[in-house]
Design a protein around this nucleic acid. Structure first.
Length: 489
RNA sequence: GGUACCGUGGCCGAGCGGCUAGGCGGUGGUCUGCAAAACCAUAGACAGCGGUUCGAAUCCGCUCGGUACCUCCA
């Protein structure tokens, strides 16, 4: 399997050549959503980022098993530190079963991901469905002496672990620093050290979601599910683990610790982290209460939005920034993304209509290399998109008769667009006109023919009225050299 | 306070020591009955101050400003 793919590994803080452990197979695990609320723009980022990774690896002919979990065992609420499960709290408020809430938001998440044209992962395991695996993991960590039981709960012994392994290797933390900076939280006195984290937490009376275990009726600690499910479906060591930068510490750091504590080796070869989406320069997040849900973007129903933005506009907007940079939301930026993407799709339609020449006046062959080079360089989608815009410019120039292309070069561009725009970037044209509604086509043909007659008679008032009226129902008419064309906006 | 990172033209956003990134917007043109689209041309930038170098947006230091994370929220 030849590839030139370089990806940034958080573990080494540098780009590394991608070499899978068992080619052509690749195992990838990504931290999925906690299903206690509607997905917002912040959820779209990791989903789309790793969708690109998934798509590109498959394009390179790897056999990818992509595991993205659903976290349905919630834990403490951020500002309501009463030991109440996030999902349980929402359930009580709305008088629903916790699993009913889980089902509701899981379905909505799936719907949003489909709208964004995010491919389904190969496996989508739930935390609640893997309690047994998590308990087994705790047992083995206890057996190896890296955890201790206290008041029915089990805690990971970070200090003990640090004697044998490097706790902080991923996030760059130092144990001494951690000791000095700890919030006051419930259950703190049960722990040997403030930086120890829970593997199993004894339930409190208010807690709705709990399971039996050797230690108490309770629920698993927050980092455990990924360690358990990653190992179950991808093996004790797998290639890529992804997630948001906000999960770097403590979540992923602790995952590494847990795996070492029970198996004696690291679980993951490449750690990838996408950056945040910001709004007014701040991370968009549930706990900050500054999020805009995806449904609100799609409908335009949010006070911060000028208008509705289509799922593909959101996808394109996210892809126009590199995944390791923050991307700042604004109406202006989304307008730009919308217009730019439309330009790209106009080009796609135009390619089919180009007239081939006997020779090409411009070199288009090098675009293939530059497109692959962009993707190979740590999935640099903004560069890839810039290349596609360059191609778009050439296509337009050919259409205007200012440059020429041979039939094979035209086919070459068609293929590049098909591979990069649709297959790898996962963009789909939202031009509704593309469907096979013959009646609409015929109706439009009749209307535009009437307008053509009016134009012939220099009856501009009638011609403009037809265009304006169609405009009111979002049908846009454009006069070109080849006659009027229309599309639904 | 600690750790990681960022500061690029009106906006978004690439860039990893020398070569126009790109998109949106602006301006001037071509085309068009008008509009739209398209094309051509054009303006505009590297937070500040030092240093390294023949040469720095890119490397180093300091200053200023901002973000994320810092253990039982996933």
């Amino acid at each position: 399997m030849n590839n030139n793919l370089q990806l940034y590994n958080t573990l080494s803080r540098s780009k590394e050549k991608f070499e899978p452990l068992n080619p052509p197979n690749v195992g990838m695990y990504v931290c999925g959503p906690t299903v206690y609320g509607d997905a917002h723009l912040g959820h779209a980022r990791p989903a789309i980022t790793f969708d690109i990774v998934f798509r590109y690896l498959m394009h390179l002919d790897y056999k990818v098993r992509y595991v993205r979990n659903i976290t349905d065992v919630g834990h403490l609420e951020n500002d309501a530190d009463e030991g109440e499960d996030k999902i349980a709290k929402k359930a009580r408020l709305e008088e629903l079963e916790p699993m009913e809430v889980v089902k509701h938001f899981t379905d909505r998440y799936h719907k949003n991901m489909d709208q964004l044209n995010v491919l389904h992962p190969s496996i989508e395991p739930t935390a609640s469905g893997h309690i047994i695996e998590q308990i087994e993991l705790i047992k083995s960590i206890l057996d190896n002496g890296y955890a201790y039981e206290s008041e029915g709960s089990v805690y990971f012994d970070v200090k003990k672990y640090s004697n044998d392994y490097d706790y902080g290797k991923l996030s760059g933390r130092k144990l001494d620093d951690l000791l000095e900076n700890t919030r006051t939280l419930t259950g703190q006195q049960e722990k040997k050290n403030s930086y120890d984290f829970a593997l199993w937490k004894k339930t409190d009376p208010k807690h709705l979601m709990h399971w039996p275990s050797p230690w108490s009726e309770g629920y698993p600690g927050w980092h455990l599910e990924c360690s358990a499910m990653g190992a179950k479906y991808l093996g004790e060591t797998f290639d890529i683990h992804g997630g948001g930068m906000d999960l770097l510490f403590p979540h992923h750091e602790s995952e590494i610790a847990q795996s070492n504590a029970c198996r004696g080796h690291d679980p993951v070869h490449y750690w990838m982290h996408n950056n945040m989406i910001t709004i007014d320069g701040q991370k968009m997040g549930k706990s900050l209460n500054n999020f805009i849900t995806l449904d609100e973007f799609f409908s335009g129903k949010h006070k911060a939005l000028d208008k509705a933005y289509s799922p593909m506009t959101i996808r394109f907007f996210i892809l126009q920034a590199h995944y390791r940079s923050t991307v700042d939301f604004s109406n202006e930026a989304l307008h730009a993304a919308e217009k730019g993407m439309q330009k790209l799709f106009n080009t796609v339609e135009l390619i089919d209509k180009l007239t081939p020449s006997s020779n090409s006046s411009v070199d288009v062959q090098h675009f293939k290399d530059s497109l692959y080079a962009a993707m190979d360089d740590d999935f640099n989608t903004p560069i890839a998109i810039a290349q596609l815009f360059e191609l778009s410019k050439i296509v337009n120039q050919v259409n205007d008769g200012k440059e020429t292309l041979t039939a094979s070069d035209i086919l070459f561009i068609q293929n590049l667009y098909s591979v990069f725009v649709f297959e790898i970037l996962g963009l789909i044209s939202e031009n509704i006109k593309g469907n096979d509604d013959q009646l609409v086509d015929q109706l439009m043909g009749a209307i535009l023919s009437l307008r053509q007659d009016a134009k012939q008679n220099k009856d501009w008032a009638t011609a403009d009225k037809i265009r304006d009226e169609l405009g009111k129902i979002n049908i846009k008419v454009k006069d070109t050299k080849e006659g009027a064309v229309w599309n639904i906006e």
